[in-house]
């Protein structure tokens, strides 16, 4: 009955084009020998990639982004691991309330969190910079990591832990010999995806970073100057390729050993 539907298929192809053209445009223009992003293409050049190497502010911003990304992804994965364990293992009282509270930062407009944090931070007389940015990224990534880990843990067969206890291991060794290795793909996926989210995050960093630019803020500051943005295109092309690889690895890990389970509800 559901064998073929050409109309729908053609529609899907068009939608694919709609999705991908804006993304693929940037890498194409990053090799174009012109300051203007206009068709037809002028000529092929590596100049913008070479230029990128000489921008010390870019290097600083990249370093800041990686630093924030690593701290945010590790901390939020840890926090999320405990929370996911609590929700999957115990019948938590006020389940809906605590679950909703933890997911909230993911749903409400980021600008509101940014405003709230800038207000409390400055009213405490603290200096803005990478610390509030990191805190806000942890807040923003944790619900995400939790959803990934919960779906991993729900597919987890509790009797495996029981089998380990039954074969003589205590809870500590059961965790290290059974639980952790089985959750590891989910944990790594959570680390990778949280890193990508933090690395890409703009609005929180925009409000809270002050002069310590992260990479998206650096790119934002360069977009206004036509002479400067070709090297942003080169940077963008690299970011697109690297994040795509990271995300595909994460997707692959998330489904590793999950058999034919097809739960994409948190796959975003």
């Amino acid at each position: 009955m559901y064998n073929k539907n050409n109309t729908l298929f053609i529609y899907c192809v068009f939608y694919f084009a709609f999705l991908y053209i804006p993304v693929l445009l940037l890498p194409i223009f990053s090799f174009n020998d012109s300051f203007h992003m206009v068709f037809p293409l002028k000529g092929f050049t590596f100049d913008w990639y070479i230029q990128m190497w000489n921008k010390s502010r870019l290097h600083q911003a990249l370093f800041n982004s990686i630093k924030v990304g690593i701290i945010a992804s590790v901390v939020s994965t840890f926090i999320a691991l405990f929370a996911a364990k609590a929700f999957t293992r115990y019948k938590v009282k006020f389940h809906g309330l605590s679950y909703g509270a933890i997911l909230l930062p993911f749903i409400i407009p980021e600008i509101i969190i940014a405003v709230a944090l800038i207000v409390i931070w400055t009213s405490m007389g603290l200096k803005l910079g990478l610390i509030p940015v990191t805190i806000s990224h942890i807040l923003f990534c944790t619900p995400f990591c939790m959803l990934i880990l919960i779906s991993r843990m729900e597919g987890f067969d509790k009797s495996l832990e029981e089998a380990s206890m039954d074969l003589g291991e205590n809870s500590f060794w059961t965790f290290w010999r059974v639980t952790f290795p089985l959750l590891l793909p989910g944990i790594i996926a959570s680390l990778l995806l949280a890193f990508v989210i933090s690395f890409d995050e703009f609005i929180l960093a925009f409000f809270l970073s002050s002069s310590d630019q992260t990479l998206p803020i650096y790119m934002w500051s360069q977009l206004r100057f036509p002479k400067k943005f070709p090297h942003i295109l080169a940077l963008g092309a690299i970011i697109i390729i690297v994040t795509s690889l990271i995300v595909m690895t994460a997707y692959w890990l998330r489904n590793l050993g999950q058999g034919k389970k097809k739960d994409f509800s948190i796959g975003i």
Binding site: D157, S159, L160, E162, A163, L182, G257
Partner: peptide, 8 residues
């Protein structure tokens, strides 16, 4: 019942 063979 489901044998609980460690898959890893």
């Amino acid at each position: 019942q489901n044998y609980a063979i460690f898959p890893h």
